[in-house]
């Protein structure tokens, strides 16, 4: 039986269809979860996709972080279930307290939509185990509030514990501190990043297949654990 990976849809989510497609490309079963759900249907992992959940009201991700489905997601993540937050999903995981720091308005005030190269700084998380450490991947970045910020002590702790998972391979176009594109939880099972790996899984529709590695990585971990 293949692994089952939940993909959450909030009002205003845009990338749930692509995220579910990436899950299927990797060889897992995609299970749709709705923001009002309180039962995760026994999924083995969860993807919180990008978009503009609840219209970015209050702060990006703030309302979604309080939605019914996130209660069980936070609980399961604390027990070690792998969770991946992409773009708005990353913002939601920060707002929900699963990841430290916050995402604020890009320094240039412009919405950035282009392909970008990332370095995989930690190839030992649930979502990056299939990459070589230091590997360069090209995936789309599309966000207006993608600038990662945290206080100096938190940044030092993230660096020291190897929890910077992805770094922009060029000076961060959004002004992210220390060029951080993605981070993980202390156990390496919750990962959040601003760029979109789910849009880079097929050369027909994206810059390549580099993004698929996140989804095959978690699948490898789940099947190894089964």
């Amino acid at each position: 039986m293949s692994a089952r990976i939940g993909v959450i849809t909030f009002p205003g989510t845009l990338d749930d269809v692509d995220a579910a497609r990436a899950v299927r490309y990797a060889g897992a079963e995609a299970v749709g979860l709705w923001h009002r759900d309180t039962d995760l249907q026994s999924v083995d992992a969860v993807v919180v996709p990008g978009g503009f959940s609840y219209g970015d009201y209050l702060r990006a991700g703030a309302i979604a972080a309080q939605s019914p489905v996130m209660g069980p997601v936070v609980e399961a993540a604390r027990r070690g279930m792998p969770v991946l937050g992409i773009c708005n999903g990353f913002q939601i995981l920060c707002e929900a307290g699963l990841l430290p720091g916050a995402l604020v308005r890009n320094t240039g005030l412009r919405f950035i939509c282009r392909e970008i190269r990332l370095r995989v700084e930690n190839a030992d998380t649930a979502w990056t185990a299939g990459f070589e450490p230091g590997a360069a991947i090209t995936v789309p970045l599309k966000s207006g509030e993608g600038r990662f910020v945290a206080d100096e002590a938190t940044l030092d702790r993230l660096e020291g514990e190897g929890r910077v998972v992805f770094r922009y391979a060029e000076p961060a176009p959004n002004g992210a501190l220390r060029d951080i594109a993605g981070i993980c939880s202390t156990d390496g099972r919750v990962v959040g990043l601003m760029p979109h790996p789910e849009h880079a899984i097929d050369p027909l529709t994206g810059p390549g297949v580099d993004g698929l590695g996140l989804f095959t990585s978690v699948l490898g971990r789940l099947t190894a654990a089964a």
């Binding site: 707002e95 916050a102 910020v149």
Partner: peptide, 8 residues
Amino acid sequence: SLLANPVM
């Protein structure tokens, strides 16, 4: 816990 984000 809701109206402000203490991080920023």
